[in-house]
Simulated scan of single mutants.
Amino acid sequence: MSTHMSARTLTRLCVLPAATAAIALSLVSPASAHVSATVSDASAGAFTVATFSVPHGCEGSPTTKIEIQVPESVLSVTPTRNPLYEVEPRIEQLEEPVTDAHGNEATERTASVVYTATTPLPEGQRDTFELSFQVPDAAGETLAFPTIQTCQKGETAWTEVPAEGQDSDELESPAPAFEILPASDEGGHGEETAGSAEESHDADGSAAAAGAADAADGEDDGSDALGWAGLAAGLLGLAAGGLALARTRTTS
């Protein structure tokens, strides 16, 4: 009887962690197999860095070249150096001059950036490519960067743009894209933002230090309380176990 009860109890104890693990796994989204883009700041007018991720080759074939096409609303981009690729920005002339974010007259724009691999990217490995640029002042719009992936055998054109109301997940080869968010109050270059942060730190340094000290004291008090509570629970459990053992021996 005792052995049966122990086995049943053990089974119940194992069921809960297993169910919890199953729920956790169901909440994890599968990794995207598409060429995708993430940005450091999607705010309108912000200076951002877009990172393009290439997770695989063309049906098993190693990747030899990546061409990222720049949307017309972006005049220029600055590519990050990649030691495994030759980087070539392709420039095109504008039909009419336009004024850029700095008030200068621009007569040309970056049409695309081509990364040619000095050594092909194996199928089982991934790589990333970065472009720095200013996000257009067009909150709510989606900025797409059609990308051509050329491999030793074959080519994949990640160029599909969803129609209005269509989900990009429905597309077979969607273009890397992101939605432009409303302009941030901070704005400016990264250097300016960093400088503002340093000034704020200097001005509020004393208050921040005092707050950190108070938080540390509170954490110590909380840790002590939890420690005593744990000790008391352990003693109660030990006593209960001893009592149960004594009753078992008596009935035997």
Rank of each mutant, 00 (worst) to 15 (best):
R126G: 03
Q152L: 15
V35T: 04
E199K: 09
G188W: 04
A239G: 15
G237M: 11
T150Q: 06
A213F: 09
S53T: 10
A163F: 01
G230M: 02
D185K: 13
A138K: 13
I180D: 00
T142V: 06
S252H: 15
G124V: 01
A210N: 13
V135G: 04
T156D: 07
A138C: 01
F47Y: 11
G140C: 02
L181Q: 15
V49C: 04
R109M: 09
E59Q: 12
T156G: 06
P30N: 14
S168H: 10
A33S: 13
D100A: 01
S40R: 03
A194W: 13
S61M: 02
P122T: 03
T156L: 07
V77M: 06
P122Y: 04
G190D: 11
A101M: 08
E59C: 04
D169W: 10
G222R: 15
V39N: 08
V35M: 06
E191L: 12
G242S: 10
T193S: 12
Q149M: 08
L235Q: 10
S223V: 13
S206M: 09
G190L: 15
T110N: 10
F145T: 06
A215E: 05
P136G: 09
T119C: 00
L143T: 00
A18H: 06
A139S: 12
V70I: 12
H201K: 12
T51F: 07
F52S: 05
L231H: 10
L245D: 12
E130S: 09
A101H: 12
S200C: 03
P182M: 03
A144R: 06
E186M: 15
C58M: 00
A210S: 13
S173T: 12
Y115D: 08
G187E: 15
Y85Q: 04
T116H: 02
M5Y: 12
T250E: 08
G205C: 13
A21M: 07
G140Y: 08
A138E: 09
P136D: 09
T118S: 14
S76G: 05
L231E: 11
E123T: 10
P30H: 15
E160D: 07
P174I: 05
T150H: 00
T150C: 04
W228D: 10
S112I: 02
W228G: 08
P89D: 00
